[in-house]
Amino acid sequence: MTNAKERSSRMKSLFANVDSAELAKQISAGPAVKVGSGAVKSMDRAFVAVEEENERLRLQLSGSEAIVEIDSALVVPSFVRDRLDIEGDPNFQGFVEGIRESGQRLPILVRPSPDKQGYFQVAYGHRRLRACQILERPVKAIVRDLTDDELVVAQGIENTERANLSFIEQAFFAATLKARGFRRETIAAALGRADGKLTYVSMLIGIAEQVPAELIGIIGPAPSIGRPKWEKLAAQFKDGKAPAAAQTIIDKLTSTAVWAAATSDQRFAALMSALEHKAARGNQGEEVDLGGGAVITAKSSRSSTLITIPESKVPGLSAWLVERLPALVEEYRKQTGETPMG
């Protein structure tokens, strides 16, 4: 893939010797040709790209887009997060060492911060910025005035061209943009969906909104996990919330040392396995062994839980529990912070 500088040079040489007046004569003298609407749209996009590239070339040649060095401490991230875990990437430390030894070869793109005077905001180049911040060195950047739409499109296209955002990072990126009020057409452009089809965007948003955002954050990018497995996990939740039983499993699993030491892919696999195991056990019911042959069973469905107590083994326990239920419910509400429903 050629970089922007190479494309600009080719574009310049391609059109350098064209006589626009002569070209106009030749076009007007030619016979009229019917062209399909699809071809027209394709040509429109191509010429728009040419015009944008020529304009960028003109700006660069005029010096208005010169590469400058900025104190990396004065550069803040984009207002929308695309990468879930930059420093957790096992290749990131090598990336930092590469910049330490060879320097920063490609500039990042920033705009003046709309919120903090004297600061800048990244459109793309978050990894390069973070590396320069860790190394406490200035970051090379191109400064450009960008609208919010232009910023997220530049941010998303750079990631798409490098093809290194995982499925859930794309989904989380799309859902975050939607939550901030961006149109789906802009989200599609930010994801590099030049075909204009919005079904892919809707699918991404649907999955990201189904899984709790906090859970996505602690799982991480899961680079090897694609759409089918994330859809399977999303089916365990409703409107971004986990059922009480599932939440108990999540809390227990994510607080372990094994979880902390696991890779993002391993975390996803462990969580999926735990939830599927819980679902399998749910069909058979949970059992509480009271000793002496007394076993209480509990079978749960989406709408209710059926608890069975062997009256012959523990006489009076059922009546005692029923009598204690109001106090137990009150204790539960205090622990969970829930309030009675009106």
Rank of each mutant, 00 (worst) to 15 (best):
E55Q: 15
R144P: 02
Q121M: 14
R83I: 05
V76I: 09
K116C: 11
L84T: 02
L135W: 04
V76D: 14
I67V: 13
E136S: 15
V96M: 12
Q60T: 02
A123D: 10
I157M: 00
A141I: 03
F79E: 06
R127P: 01
E101I: 07
R100C: 06
F120T: 00
E55S: 14
L84N: 03
E69G: 04
Q155C: 11
V75A: 04
A141Q: 02
G88D: 15
A73Y: 05
D89N: 13
I108T: 00
E87L: 15
A141E: 03
L151G: 06
L135R: 06
A141H: 02
G98A: 08
L57N: 02
S113W: 11
A131K: 04
E101C: 07
E101V: 03
D148P: 05
L129A: 12
P114H: 13
N91V: 06
G88Q: 10
I108L: 14
I99A: 09
Y119W: 12
G94R: 13
S78P: 03
G94T: 04
S64P: 05
S102D: 06
H126L: 04
R83P: 04
P112A: 10
I70V: 14
E55G: 14
S62D: 15
Q60Y: 07
Q133W: 07
G118S: 11
R56Q: 11
E87D: 15
R111W: 01
H126R: 09
E158F: 00
P77V: 06
E69L: 13
H126K: 11
E69H: 11
I134N: 13
P112L: 15
L135V: 12
L59N: 15
V68G: 08
S102Y: 12
A154F: 04
P114Y: 09
A73D: 14
V152E: 02
G63F: 10
V75P: 00
L146A: 08
R56W: 02
